[in-house]
Amino acid sequence: MHTQLILGIAPLIETSLENPGVRVIDFAAFGVLALVWVFVGLLLLFVRSLLRDDNNLQRGL
């Protein structure tokens, strides 16, 4: 713990949950990442449905 404080590194996650200094915002990045994947998933479903229903989408140039 002493080394961690000297380096300015926050406590490990396991202990940080008990640490009053831990910030909820530190977990927000996980939520953002999940949202990206949901969005990309929906986009892929849309493209897939286009490809399935209409072969014309594979015309290229």
């Binding site: 380096l7 300015g8 590194i9 926050a10 406590p11 996650i13």
Partner: peptide, 11 residues
């Protein structure tokens, strides 16, 4: 060592 806090790192 765990994640760092930028403000602490800078200070």
């Amino acid at each position: 060592r765990g994640y760092y806090i930028p403000e602490i790192q800078l200070a």
